[in-house]
Simulated assay, not measured.
Amino acid sequence: MKNVLILNDFVSKGKIAARLMAPVLSYMDCEVFLLPTAMIANNFSLGGNAFYNIDPFIKESLQNWENLGIKFDLIFIGYIENSKQKDMIKDFIKNLDYKPTIVFDPIMGDDGALYPGLDESKIKSYKDLVAIADIIIPNKTEANFLDLDLESLTKKGKKIIITSANKDDKPAVIYYDGKENIIPYKKENINVGGSGDLFDGLFIAYLLKSFDYIQAIDKTCKDIVRIILANDKDNPGASEINIEKYLSLIEG
């Protein structure tokens, strides 16, 4: 069983972010260490919100696990609340005496715009985290905000996976590893939150099961379509995925 550390926001109302990733990874035989980077009352799309400063808990948890000798096979970095957290996480990773795989999804926007309440400081912090990541998974909007130098990054051995992309006017995930790899998928006309988080969880699990990148992406996309269709059939117009109900649809 692989140890996976999820550094991502915990949303009390909404099956998104860490609340969606954790059950997927657990179902796929990973030991999940969930460390919230933000305690958020609900997803941003609802408008009003409430936040809790979690920074001391992050610092103490990372130190505690280090003292206990716990090692992670993979560390996932998602939403980061502030530059202090960013520096804390960077320092933790740089000081490890072993090399876990670092996966970074720079969660900050979609459809050409930043999420409400986010600003240029988020972009600056996320650009800094690109340097420590092995695998970077932005959607098309986030990739544009980060202004990723694909050639330079892949020459350093980094893998870039751009989700919600298009190739020849067809939906695709584009994977860069020194060359451009196109993984097409069937896009359903269903608007549901958390599909990016579901991609992260499934892709990580398949990667840890030793599938290659293209296989892992393809299997992830097919699983997402099955899950979203089943969720919409049972709950037409639902704004989120009742993921626990559909874990058995994961191909595994």
Rank of each mutant, 00 (worst) to 15 (best):
158 K>M: 10
193 G>D: 14
207 L>S: 11
138 P>W: 12
236 P>G: 09
169 D>I: 05
144 N>G: 13
152 S>D: 14
180 E>C: 10
227 I>S: 05
139 N>Y: 05
153 L>Q: 09
153 L>G: 08
189 N>D: 15
184 P>G: 00
226 R>S: 12
236 P>Y: 05
239 S>T: 09
147 D>F: 00
157 G>I: 03
160 I>A: 11
191 N>M: 05
187 K>C: 05
229 L>Q: 08
224 I>M: 06
145 F>E: 00
220 T>H: 08
237 G>I: 08
244 E>H: 10
209 K>T: 02
237 G>P: 09
148 L>R: 02
151 E>N: 10
138 P>M: 14
211 F>R: 03
229 L>G: 05
238 A>V: 12
163 T>S: 03
230 A>R: 04
147 D>E: 14
183 I>K: 01
194 G>T: 07
240 E>R: 09
140 K>S: 12
174 I>R: 06
182 I>D: 09
137 I>A: 01
155 K>E: 15
234 D>L: 10
154 T>C: 06
155 K>R: 14
204 I>A: 01
138 P>Y: 13
189 N>G: 08
154 T>S: 07
150 L>G: 10
168 D>I: 08
145 F>D: 01
150 L>H: 10
220 T>P: 09
233 K>T: 15
211 F>I: 07
225 V>R: 15
191 N>H: 13
188 E>T: 11
210 S>G: 06
226 R>H: 09
140 K>Q: 13
178 G>H: 00
174 I>L: 13
153 L>W: 10
157 G>N: 03
160 I>C: 12
184 P>L: 06
207 L>P: 01
180 E>M: 13
179 K>M: 05
147 D>C: 02
163 T>W: 01
196 G>Y: 03
238 A>S: 15
158 K>R: 13
235 N>C: 00
198 L>M: 11
213 Y>R: 00
139 N>L: 04
159 K>S: 09
175 Y>S: 14
202 L>W: 03
179 K>Q: 07
193 G>E: 15
153 L>M: 14
